[in-house]
């Protein structure tokens, strides 16, 4: 179980590094919003792993809040994108 948790932590860290690279690099703002969505999903996953490993439920509300933030953020940005070139 401990080994599995360590591996999961490494994988989640790798995923968030990839998402952060795309946020920094991303050619357009839509790519950045997409990468932010992935980053939020990864953070939510990390919270869920914490809950599963330590057997508590403190973060459930935070999970829902994170999905709301991702939703509102991407919808708002998508509404105000301008044409390329």
């Amino acid at each position: 179980m401990t080994v599995a948790v360590i591996v999961v932590g490494l994988l989640l860290g790798l995923a968030s590094l990839c998402a952060l690279y795309r946020i920094a690099r991303g050619p357009s703002i839509l790519d950045r919003v997409l990468a932010i969505d992935v980053l939020l999903a990864t953070i939510g996953g990390a919270l869920a792993v914490d809950m599963a490993v330590n057997r508590h439920l403190d973060n459930v509300v935070l999970l829902v809040a994170i999905s709301v933030i991702g939703f509102i953020g991407s919808v708002t940005v998508a509404r105000f994108v301008t044409d390329r070139k």
């Binding site: 599995a4 948790v5 790798l14 968030s16 590094l17 990839c18 997409l34 792993v49």
Partner: peptide, 19 residues
């Protein structure tokens, strides 16, 4: 452990896909 690893692999797949 299987569920956690599967979920983490999904995150990595998304990260690699983004790259």
């Amino acid at each position: 452990a299987i569920c956690l690893l599967g979920g983490a692999l999904m995150s990595v797949a998304a990260g690699v896909g983004l790259l």
